[in-house]
């Protein structure tokens, strides 16, 4: 039961990083930490017959696929907007939206 506290601390650190960091890569690292906390909890509370470890391989493969998709999106976004800072990306998106609305008007 005590492993729950360790994974809870990891989860809270990941959520805090997700909410406060502005760099895209740091957001990705936060997501990785949250996934690590989830798998830690999953493994330590697994049944003793080894099924938990077998299912963990599935969890790892899903996590890796999600990581690959997220990283591809990060590279596309940062190349398109020329920065990896979320606040600058949002500002550029707003500028673009305003320009488009002016053209339509």
């Amino acid at each position: 039961m005590d492993y729950v506290i360790l994974s809870l601390v990891m989860l809270l650190i990941g959520i805090y990083g997700l909410l406060t960091n502005r760099q895209l890569l740091k957001v990705f690292i936060s997501i990785e930490l949250i996934a690590t906390a989830a798998t830690l909890n999953f493994i330590m509370l697994a049944s003793p017959n080894g099924v938990g470890q077998a299912l963990l391989i599935l969890a790892f493969s899903v996590d890796t696929a999600v990581s690959a998709v997220i990283l591809a999106l990060l590279v596309i976004v940062s190349k398109r907007y020329g920065t990896s800072d979320i606040s600058k990306i949002v500002a550029k998106m707003q500028e673009k939206a305003e320009e488009e609305s002016e053209v339509e008007a």
Binding site: M1, D2, Y3, I5, M44, P48, N49, Q53
Partner: peptide, 11 residues
């Protein structure tokens, strides 16, 4: 302080 060791069910 809650001693994480020795509480796992893993075989």
């Amino acid at each position: 302080f809650l001693s994480v060791s020795g509480t796992s069910n893993v075989a």
